[in-house]
């Protein structure tokens, strides 16, 4: 599904190149649950951003579902966001002015899903995550764990084939974090959704089936769990 070849990312500052990523080459197959681990500043988030096409690599090629997406025009990229990629953020990044229901609805609107289909998908998600009672509340009326649940529901609404999660439990207490990770595992196993997450915690990484260790921009280890 994902094919990275020799990805490099650096910033040139006064003629000195400071590398964030060096020679990253890897393949991620459909249905894998990959955790990217490493110390702060190792380049985990940059790698995830490149995978999410939020940043472009300075060098190397990136193939997503057999298509070269190394540098993509906006229209194509948005097309991928609408249909294939779901994001989950550490700080949830729900839209404060929208209710739970509307937050989940937003990606469907961009995807131009019909209103009946929309209603049924959202109802399904609300039900599945046990947040039906919360649908008319605003994000700031929810706990962190609940907000992250809404964040994941939103990412799933468009029925993506891959979820990119940047420290999804970083702001949560351990009980809530566990709940979220179990959810991810379930999504991966039952629905076959490919998940790539960045995490600090060994424990969270265990939920996946593959761990990429990164240090100083270089992949140091690739372990199947």
């Amino acid at each position: 599904m994902i094919e990275l070849k020799n990805i490099e990312k650096y910033y040139a500052n006064k003629g000195v190149k400071s590398y964030i990523l060096r020679h990253v080459t890897t393949t991620i197959k459909q249905g894998e649950f990959v955790s990217i681990m490493g110390p702060s500043g190792a380049g985990k988030s940059t790698l995830l951003n490149i995978l999410g096409m939020l940043e472009e690599p300075t060098y190397g090629t990136y193939e997503f579902m057999g298509e070269n997406v190394t540098s993509l025009n906006e229209r194509k990229r948005i097309e991928l966001y609408r249909n294939h990629i779901g994001f989950v953020f550490q700080a949830y990044h729900l839209i404060d002015e929208m209710t739970v229901y509307e937050n989940i609805e937003a990606p469907l609107l961009y995807k131009k899903v019909g209103s009946a289909e929309r209603a049924s998908r959202i109802a399904n998600l609300l039900d599945r995550f046990n947040i039906v009672a919360k649908k008319d509340l605003f994000p700031n009326q929810l706990s962190g764990g609940q907000q992250q649940l809404v964040g994941i529901a939103r990412a799933l609404a468009a029925q993506p084939s891959i979820i990119l999660a940047d420290e999804p439990t970083g702001n949560l207490q351990s009980a809530q974090a566990e709940e979220i990770m179990q959810l991810f595992q379930k999504l991966n196993k039952e629905d076959g959704i490919t998940i790539i997450q960045v995490t600090h915690s060994e424990k969270n990484a265990e939920y996946g089936n593959r761990i990429l260790h990164i240090a100083d921009g270089v992949v140091k280890g690739d372990v199947q769990v």
Partner: peptide, 16 residues
């Protein structure tokens, strides 16, 4: 700003 960022990754284009 946050709203813009989120909407962009949810698949909203600049025009919208």
């Amino acid at each position: 700003a946050k709203e813009v960022g989120v909407k962009k990754v949810l698949g909203s284009n600049k025009h919208q």
